[in-house]
């Protein structure tokens, strides 16, 4: 298996006015090409900071991030922007441009990459078909539901054929049924295009649904990591046990819901 993301001893300290907050305390993790890697933890565990380190939206205070063997800290601003076109990201609150219609939102990353307007529109139309929103091309984000907005964000993320897709709590603002359909879409994308997906979540259900691997963050440190089966059947850390236990409680509730559907 080829490693696509290497996180080596990454630490991040935030300086506030009167004290320091250690958001990440020396995390090391390898993510292989084609994985759907879940990073899970309670709120405040540092998972959003970690995912932002992967595309250098946050610069680690210590440690190294290698993307396809390239050390991000060694890149110039221009090179970093180029690498970022290969690392797409979707967000909890979708972060679409509210003043642009759906088609032009999907075109935006291609504008940044310098693709001609004609080609960008053509590709955007294809992408909207993939996410099942071709008839919404002329709508504005304010006219869409949460699930539809996330689909637009996914189409936008795929625009420049990225090798990696980072998902920061991408389903946390969605209801269970919509969450399921978005996760299904992510899984299809992973299988069809071989895109490596990193999923940040606080819900074990998301991990169970689509992830191949999982890392558990606890209070800025890595509590445990491995394949989803390993962790689910044999959790060793307290953090893992807690998350799985919490999920079991929720599990039955959700099962009932999906049976009703």
């Amino acid at each position: 298996m080829e490693t696509i993301i290497q996180i080596q001893n990454v630490a991040k300290t935030f300086m506030t006015k009167d004290n320091q907050v250690e958001a990440l305390k020396g995390i090391s993790l390898d993510i292989n090409k084609g994985d759907i890697y879940g990073i899970i933890g309670m709120s405040g565990a540092g998972k959003s900071t970690l995912v932002r380190c992967l595309n250098f939206l946050e610069r680690p205070t210590k440690g190294t991030i290698l993307i396809e063997k390239q050390d991000l800290s060694q890149l110039t601003e221009k090179q970093l922007r180029k690498v970022r076109t290969n690392i797409a990201m979707i967000f909890q609150h979708f972060n679409l441009l509210m003043q642009r219609n759906v088609l032009d939102n999907v075109c935006f990353p291609m504008e940044i990459a310098g693709i001609s307007r004609h080609d960008a529109r053509k590709r955007a139309t294809e992408l909207l078909e993939i996410v099942g929103l071709e008839e919404k091309a002329k709508s504005y984000p304010s006219q869409l539901s949460g699930g539809q907005k996330q689909r637009v964000a996914i189409a936008r993320a795929l625009a420049n054929n990225p090798g990696i897709l980072l998902c920061d709590e991408a389903t946390s603002a969605l209801d269970p049924a919509t969450t399921k359909s978005i996760l299904k879409l992510l899984q299809d994308i992973n299988q069809q295009y071989g895109i490596t997906i990193v999923i940040i979540t606080h819900e074990m259900a998301v991990v169970r649904e689509i992830c191949s691997h999982v890392a558990i963050l606890d209070n800025g440190g890595l509590a445990e990591h491995g394949t989803v089966e390993e962790i689910f059947f044999n959790p060793k850390s307290t953090a893992a046990k807690e998350l799985i236990f919490m999920e079991e409680g929720k599990f039955t509730g959700e099962e009932i819901n999906s049976n009703v559907e």
Partner: peptide, 13 residues
Amino acid sequence: DYGVIEAAQSMGA
């Protein structure tokens, strides 16, 4: 919205 700016940054803008 800062999130939209962050999204543009993540695209390499």
